[in-house]
Design a protein around this nucleic acid. Structure first.
Lengths: 228, 228
DNA sequence: CAAAACACCGACTGATGGGTCGGAAAAAAT
DNA sequence: ATTTTTTCCGACCCATCAGTCGGTGTTTTG
């Protein structure tokens, strides 16, 4: 007999979302389980019915977030066929993020990274998890490029440098995201992104174009599974 | 009569450096004053002879760090005359950082930013301080570009977009720095930087060159003063 | 050398927060 | 209806840590 009913999983998810919100706002160390419990509308001890400890709760929140991001990319690729446009939409999505409350996703992204790179951070022992996800993102972008090349939308030489370009693109995004969190009112983020893409595009584009293309292979649904 | 002897200021500096080290390693919240005191080779209470509280100590550490960074840029500009080379050297300096122990400067940079953008963080009430410093950096890079233009090393159109280019450059650096902290062993950071600069250079460079140029104006010595 | 000023620190305080426990309330099973 | 299982949580425990206090050693001053 299965104890893991849908209801139970749902409740765990509600808690994980409340946790995501609190971790995002206050950071891992400062967000207290009391806060989280209050935000989820339950008692503190109840959390321990669903998660072994604070760390596991954080992991759940992280997965919650990654799931969303990869979904976003997938959806964008399903909606547009032009590689440049895909990149633009991805950049917009990550930097504007109207969907979820106030820029919080960026903050959580950095909270995760801080926990990964800080000695004694909860994610310090899980570097490889972050690396895997990061590589997944790189591959996602690279596949957009490669698909573009194979369809003649991008220059053939691009194929050779696809990884480097992806990494550059993602680094720029990360940096812009960080910047946007404190410099929103003296830097026009979307203008910056437009400027970047505007200079990037002619380096990538070839002259021709062809039919329609599907979602690139590496972003096809595949679960991200934690470890260590 | 002045109580603030040189000796006293020196000791404060030693403590600030120990604090910088600990904040860097463990983050603001997790670094305890006990740790810091131990690292500085003094008793915990002694810290309070020099700093009012943990927050003020953090501010001191931040200033310590900024001082170093701006100095680095100044020095690089004093050593090289070519704008592209200056940017390359700056990028290398920020990403490799052999001078100070193990990549820690990046971590501290992000710790500062996290404290700035996180609700309830120590620097959350000091956003404008971070903004000022950030703008100082943008100006420093922009001045390198403008000087390059006025000396005919860079295309004249660059002058118009100097700010945008600077912001892009710095965002890329930030993103790469972040990446380098967890992806060092599957991404060759210096190759990435080289790749970026290699694509950036032809967009900036004109055909000619001229005599020698001095350190751009905005990076000339001027103290950074905290506030709020 | 005595008195004042200063630098230093061990021991304490109070608050916070992660995690446990034992039992109440609600649901399911019989 | 009664037992059993499951869900929930208030109260407690204990460790950590920022910040205080009182006193001791050391330097400066006269």
């Amino acid at each position: 007999m299965e104890y893991t009913t849908t209801k139970r999983a749902d409740k765990a998810r509600v808690i994980a979302q409340a946790a995501l919100d609190q971790f995002t706002r206050r950071g891992f160390v400062s967000a207290s389980l009391e806060n989280i419990a209050a935000a989820a509308g339950i008692g503190k001890s109840t959390i321990y019915e669903y998660f072994r400890n604070k760390e596991e709760l954080f992991v759940a929140a992280v997965q919650e977030a990654f799931e969303r991001w990869l979904n976003d990319i997938r959806e964008i690729c399903a909606q547009t066929a032009d590689p440049i446009e895909r990149l633009e939409r991805i950049a917009d999505e990550f930097l504007e993020c109207q969907e979820y409350p106030a820029q919080s996703i960026q903050r959580f992204n950095f909270e995760i990274l801080m926990q990964t790179i800080t000695e004694g951070g909860v994610f310090n022992t899980r570097k490889h998890f972050i690396r895997e996800v990061h590589q997944k993102f790189i591959r996602a972008i690279a596949d957009i490029l490669l698909t573009g090349v194979s369809r003649g939308q991008l220059k053939p030489e691009i194929a050779r440098d696809a990884d480097k370009i992806s990494i550059t693109f993602l680094s720029f995004l990360d940096g812009m995201a960080l910047t946007s969190l404190f410099a929103e009112d003296y830097i026009d983020i979307s203008r910056q992104v437009a400027f970047f893409m505007q200079n990037l595009a002619p380096l990538l584009r070839s002259g021709q174009a062809e039919g329609t293309d599907p979602v690139p292979p590496s972003i096809q649904k595949d679960n991200l599974n934690a470890s260590s």
